[in-house]
């Protein structure tokens, strides 16, 4: 049995609800509630759900962007749910995130070289020369080249920006990359090339992905396991391979039946 790389136990995040009346008792809203799952090394773990279901909250909690209210996140045998800032820094070398919108996740005023060198400087890795070498190496890995070093984000297309975002996640050689709607904003042909790239990198670097998406076609193609989240609850977790055989929860069926299919079998006139 493989040891899980990330284990989430009873993960809960609550927010204070707005007080509607003066001296009203504060009530709490659950963003996510009692989430439990394990991610094995080398796996692509998909999380799907509608907007507001809490799928991105889970990603943010794992990354330490939001503070966990209750529960544990165990990464390599260590609970990272309640870390100090210093501890976080050490962990985040091994945990990286790729955001949805490559237009807003890159600093528009800085060159690509700066964007990619910054993580190395923060973690004080290498010398100036070796950093540059590393940056070029990563750029080549994501299918771009040295010529992109001096470019700024506005000179790049959506697909190229997303490659830069992946490169900046990759540069610290993490074990786990969280991809929060990482291909949702892209056209289908570019989306295909990014998915291929992610699969190649996974093979090469033995990466583990936590892949968050609302696009069920993509998740079915890309992920080994799928977790369905609805209103902050984890409803179901199954192997993608077994999707067509098993019995599923009502909500899962509803969700997957809603995918428009590019064929005429599903078309009702």
């Amino acid at each position: 049995m493989l040891e899980p790389i990330i284990e989430v136990k009873n993960l809960t995040k609550t927010y204070k609800a707005a007080q509607k009346k003066f001296r009203q008792k504060t009530s709490y809203i659950h963003a996510v509630k009692n989430i439990n799952f394990q991610v094995l090394p080398g796996e692509s773990f998909g999380i799907v759900g509608e907007s507001g279901s809490g799928k991105s909250t889970i990603a943010h909690l794992i990354m330490g962007i939001n503070k966990v209210t209750e529960g544990e996140i165990i990464f390599r045998g260590r609970n990272i749910a309640q870390l100090s800032r210093g501890g976080e820094r050490e962990i985040c070398r091994n945990l990286q995130i790729v955001f949805q919108d490559p237009y807003s996740s890159l600093n528009p005023k800085k060159s690509i070289e700066w964007t990619l060198t910054e993580p190395l400087i923060i973690h004080s890795i290498g010398t100036k020369a070796s950093r540059k070498e590393k940056v070029i190496e990563v750029l080549e890995e994501v299918g771009l080249g040295e010529s992109y070093l001096k470019k700024k984000p506005h000179e790049l297309s959506g697909g190229q920006r997303q490659r830069i975002a992946i490169a900046s996640a990759l540069i610290l050689e993490p074990e786990v990359i969280v991809i929060d709607e990482g291909v949702s904003a892209l056209d289908v042909s570019i989306q295909a090339s990014i998915l291929n790239l992610l699969n190649e990198l996974k093979e090469k670097h033995k990466l583990t992905y936590i892949f968050i998406s609302h696009d069920l076609n993509v998740v079915q193609y890309f992920c080994d396991k799928i977790a369905v989240v609805y209103l902050g609850d984890l409803i179901e977790l199954f192997q993608t391979e077994e999707f067509h055989q098993e019995e599923h929860a009502e909500y899962t069926k509803k969700l997957f039946n809603a995918i428009p299919d590019v064929s005429f079998t599903s078309r009702t006139s």
Binding site: V188, A192, N217, Q220
Partner: peptide, 9 residues
């Protein structure tokens, strides 16, 4: 090409 690029199960 566009049709081939659509991911699915």
């Amino acid at each position: 090409g566009l049709l081939k690029a659509i991911p699915d199960f």
